[in-house]
Amino acid sequence: MIKDNASEVLKVQGLTATVDNREILCGIDLSVRAGEVHAIMGPNGSGKSTFAKVLVGHPAYEVTGGMVRFDDADLLELSPEDRARRGVFLGFQYPVEVPGVTNGGFLRLAYNTVQSARGKEELDPLEFDDFIREKMELLEMDPGFLERSLNAGFSGGEKKRNEILQMALLEPRLSILDETDSGLDIDALRIVANGVNQLHTSEDAIVLVTHYQRLLNYIEPDYVHVMENGRIIKTGDKGLALQLEDRGYDWVAQEYRERAA
């Protein structure tokens, strides 16, 4: 929800980034305030995932210009783990499989690490077990996933659900969910979307990267942005997503070029 006096969680100005000297992000501006839900849409290869990964400090990308403020911190100065501890969370488009690391053990370690960094109480294995099972119920996940290796051999949809489980645990201030909807079946999409809605409060903000209007029926965005060639070229309300569904991206790009000319 949009509130006039809500604090600004994320401010991005003129952000540029390269990979192997190729510029992928070409000057991104974005402001996200507490309580808001933003959707970023745009064609394949336009830089959505790159933007998301730059925000969490992925080492593959070099930031070449611009600034990012997260609450009062210069986000780009922080290590990836500090960003996570302060409440930046990315639900990956392609979650990494980590064979040999037990999902349950990992979740507890991540939870306790973040809790202790925030000066909050850690949980012992028994307490954690109760706690995590509750979160899994919210996402209708089988507790059997705790015993398995982290993401290893998980189906596409199971991986996405496990990402949202991590979001539920880590209580982020800013959640960036990169194509969480792709790979989820119709029922799973509803369940996961409900979960996200329940986790969302006026104290945190959500940025959804998606290709499909369907997700936005469940999680209503306050703003919809269109990214192309590493820039946000149009911003509107949830109506824009419906328009895009209908008409595709070409007209947005054309409009942008005309404005620029």
């Binding site: 969490v56 400090g57 992925h58 080492p59 290590s79 990836p80 783990e81 960003r83 996570a84 501890r85 990315l90 990956f92 979650p95 990494v96 980590v98 064979p99 040999g100 690391v101 990992f106 370690l109 991540a110 690490t113 973040v114 960094a117 290796s149 991590q166 880590l170």
Partner: peptide
């Protein structure tokens, strides 16, 4: 490296991430 980064993105330090992956190998 991608496994280390994934774990760090959930708050684990570089050392903790590498320890965990090392133990996973030995397990």
């Amino acid at each position: 490296a991608d496994e280390v980064f994934y774990l760090k993105s959930r708050g684990l330090s570089e050392t903790a991430a590498r320890n965990l992956l090392t133990y996973a190998f030995a397990k």
